[in-house]
C-alpha cells in the first residue's frame, strides 16, 4: 500500500517535471534543474467556477495552468468584463515577481483545472540557489515581457 503510494508520487513527479519543459518560462532548463524546481511547486486543483484570486489580493504566488481553462476578468458594477482566457502551459501572476503590487485582475476557473503554484519567495530562493537556472528563467521573462511590449506597440500603431 505504502509502496504503491510512493510509486504514484514518483510517476506524478516525473510527469510534472516533464510538463515543466513545455512551459515557455522553463523550456531552457535542464532535467536536473527542473527536478530542483519541482521541489518548490504546489499542485492545486480548482473546480469549475472557483475563484483562484481576486483583484487587489496580495501577490503571493505565480501560477502555471496545467489542465483546464481559466478566465481573467475585472469586476465592474456586478458585471464581469472578460480580459483574457488562459490555456494549459500559460502562466499568470508574474507581475508580482518584479513589483510589490497587488493582483491587477481576478482569475476564475472555467472548467475543472489543475494549477501549479510557486511562491514568489521560493522563486527568489530558487534563483539564488541555482543561479545558472535562474538566469535562464529571468532571461525568458525578459524575452516574454519585451515581446508583449512589441505586440502592444503594434496594436497601438495600427
Amino acid at each position: 500500500m505504502k509502496k504503491e503510494k510512493e510509486h504514484n508520487n514518483l510517476t506524478e513527479e516525473k510527469e510534472l517535471v516533464k510538463f515543466l519543459s513545455s512551459v515557455t518560462l522553463f523550456e531552457k532548463l535542464t532535467k536536473n534543474e527542473r527536478k530542483n524546481l519541482f521541489k518548490y511547486i504546489y499542485v492545486r486543483k480548482f473546480k469549475t467556477g472557483e475563484t483562484i484570486f481576486k483583484k487587489n489580493y496580495p501577490n503571493v504566488v505565480l501560477y502555471i495552468l496545467k489542465q483546464g481553462e481559466l478566465k481573467v476578468y475585472l469586476e465592474k458594477e456586478d458585471k464581469e468584463i472578460e480580459l483574457n482566457r488562459l490555456k494549459p502551459t500559460e502562466f499568470f501572476g508574474e507581475i508580482g515577481l518584479f513589483l510589490d503590487d497587488n493582483r491587477t485582475a481576478s482569475v476564475k476557473a472555467v472548467t475543472d483545472s489543475v494549477l501549479l503554484a510557486i511562491s514568489k519567495k521560493d522563486i527568489a530562493d530558487f534563483i539564488a540557489r541555482f543561479p545558472r537556472a535562474g538566469v535562464k528563467v529571468l532571461y525568458k521573462f525578459g524575452e516574454l515581457l519585451s515581446r508583449n511590449l512589441i505586440n502592444l506597440n503594434k496594436t497601438l500603431t495600427v
Binding site: 521541489k39 504546489y42 492545486r44 496580495p58 503571493v60 503554484a117 511562491s119
Partner: peptide, 25 residues
Amino acid sequence: ERKFTRMIFSSIRNRYFEFFLHLFE
C-alpha cells in the same frame, strides 16, 4: 524540510492557500 512544508500547505483549501503561505512567509 521542504516535504514537510509542502505537505502542510498542500492540505490547505484553495481559498486559504495563498493566505497561509503569505502568513507563514
